[in-house]
Simulated assay, not measured.
Amino acid sequence: MNFLVKEGYIRGSVSNTLFIQEQAEKINIFHIYVDDIIFGGTSQELVDAFVASMTRKFEMSMVGELKYFLGLQITQSEEGVFISQNTYGKNLLKRFKLDQCKEVKTLMSITTKLTRDEEGVNVDPTLYRGMIGILLYLTTSRPDLCLSVGIYMRF
């Protein structure tokens, strides 16, 4: 990380693993996650300079255009960059054996009141917390799930 700061990159204020380089009207942004780096910029010249400086200092291989990262599917086109979690959501349904459930248009009934089921079967709290955590991550691209996930979190 010190190498990057010495090279003129500014550490992001939100994440210590986000770095930004600005030159005039050009910007280069990259994010480090464990041993992966995703990067892009508004100038091919800046991107090429970044790749050159990184490969001089570190062993690095290029795998091409970003398509999937941390459960996010990225599609780039002339219209812009689109992010979704379709594959992540489908894998979630399979993992918890919910992929054969009936689909509904309304995410949650507005009349159903959730209460503690004293006579119900005990649930594994670790599994349940894991499921809620995964659903929280899914709200990154599906803010319409926030209310339902928040209500389920209470129980």
Rank of each mutant, 00 (worst) to 15 (best):
F82G: 08
F82Y: 10
R56A: 13
R56F: 14
G12S: 05
M62L: 08
N122F: 05
Q85R: 02
N2T: 13
N122L: 05
L107H: 15
T75I: 15
G89W: 14
T126C: 10
Q76R: 06
T75V: 14
S61L: 05
I37H: 12
I74S: 04
Q73F: 01
N122G: 04
E45A: 07
E119R: 14
G130E: 13
P125E: 04
G71Y: 07
L114Y: 08
T106M: 11
F19H: 08
A24D: 15
E65R: 08
E22V: 10
P143L: 10
F3L: 07
L136H: 10
I32E: 02
Y152R: 13
V63S: 13
I20M: 04
M131T: 15
I37P: 07
L138T: 06
G120K: 11
I134F: 14
R129P: 00
G71S: 09
L138H: 06
E103K: 13
F155W: 07
Y88R: 00
Y137G: 01
L136T: 08
L98S: 09
F96H: 11
I132G: 00
N16S: 12
I83V: 15
L4S: 06
L107F: 11
M54F: 04
V123E: 00
R154A: 05
G120H: 12
K97M: 13
L70V: 10
I27K: 06
V81W: 05
D117Q: 03
S84F: 13
T112D: 10
R129T: 04
S84R: 15
S77I: 03
T126W: 10
L136V: 09
V34L: 02
Y33M: 01
V121D: 12
T115C: 14
L114R: 08
L147H: 09
E7D: 02
K57M: 12
Y152M: 15
I27H: 04
S13K: 13
L145I: 06
R95W: 13
R95E: 11
L66Q: 01
L145G: 06
C146V: 05
Q73I: 01
S13G: 15
L98N: 10
N91S: 11
I27W: 05
Y9I: 00
R142T: 00
L114E: 09
V104F: 09
N16T: 10
D99G: 06
E78K: 12
F96A: 12
D35A: 02
A24R: 09
F96N: 14
I29A: 11
V34C: 03
N2P: 11
M54K: 02
M153W: 07
